[in-house]
């Protein structure tokens, strides 16, 4: 069944109901896209899932275990990996060290003060870097990398925690079209290969309809539609919501 089950999630800021009773689930190996116009409540939803915001009501269950009230660290331990909308990597380290430290954290081996980190989890780190296509840049300092490559480092760091669920808030923000496709394609590939459930938000509808297995649509805090890309595209309410938003209808799939 679903890896992540979200039911009746709600959050209000002052008088504004940012998220109003949203329910959905993500299955293992599934790419679930969350879309909606600006202010629909996507980021609020994400921040409740990753522990940065406490929901007013509702339940979040990860493989039967409730994530409510857990800190970002505990949520990581529960098997949730994430990437950030504004890319966050460890700038003073090399690409490989970024992945190594995440692997060591996952193995709970950070307490060691005397052993050098240099050779720890080298094989695993190299494998992850192979998967995201950064093996050739493993030794470079993160601070030198191009933006699209930093996004890949972050993906490798997130995968190092061996997540069952991956949360990606706008993984392709700020990228050119070709890079955007490559990034989401990579995430989709890795998710399917390791049976990881992926929940992502994305503005580029072309990317969403090409790579998502399922799509959920938020509008003014409520879930107004869900289904396969084709079903969502055909949904009358979605079309109404998006007609003002998108300059061109999303015709090609």
């Amino acid at each position: 069944m679903g890896v992540l089950m979200v039911s009746n999630l709600a959050k209000a800021f002052g008088g504004v109901q940012a998220v109003a009773g949203v329910s959905f689930c993500v299955a293992a190996g599934e790419m679930l896209a969350m879309i909606g116009p600006n202010g629909a409540g996507k980021t609020t939803c994400f921040n409740m899932l990753n522990g940065q915001l406490a929901p007013d009501a509702g339940a979040i269950e990860m493989q039967g275990q409730s994530l409510l009230g857990k800190t970002p660290r505990e949520i990581c331990r529960a098997g949730v990996g994430r990437t950030f909308q504004i890319t966050a990597t460890f700038a003073s380290m090399s690409v490989r060290e970024n992945v190594q430290i995440a692997l060591l954290s996952h193995a709970r081996r950070l307490g060691s003060l005397l052993a050098a980190m240099e050779n720890k989890f080298l094989k695993e780190a190299n494998e992850l870097l192979d998967q995201v296509g950064l093996r050739a840049q493993a030794g470079r300092p993160c601070a030198e990398l191009a933006y699209a490559d930093l996004k890949r480092v972050e993906l490798a760091v997130a995968l190092a925690s061996r997540p069952r669920l991956l949360l990606m808030d706008e993984p392709s923000a700020g990228m050119a079209a070709a890079e955007r496709h490559a990034m989401i394609q990579l995430a989709a590939q890795l998710a399917r290969a390791s049976k990881i459930a992926v929940l992502f938000t994305e503005h580029d509808m072309e990317v969403v309809f090409q790579y998502a297995d399922r799509v959920i649509v938020l509008c003014e805090g409520a879930l107004i539609a869900q289904g396969t890309p084709d079903e969502v595209r055909a949904d009358a309410r979605v079309r109404r919501v998006y007609l003002g938003e998108l300059s061109e209808p999303t015709g090609d799939a």
Binding site: F90, A91, I101, A115
Partner: peptide
């Protein structure tokens, strides 16, 4: 050591470190 790298991770990007 892993401890020292974890410290630097926490300094460079605290949220990323927590999420890992």
């Amino acid at each position: 050591s892993p401890f020292g790298y974890a410290l630097r991770a926490a300094r460079d990007a605290p949220l990323r470190a927590e999420a890992s």
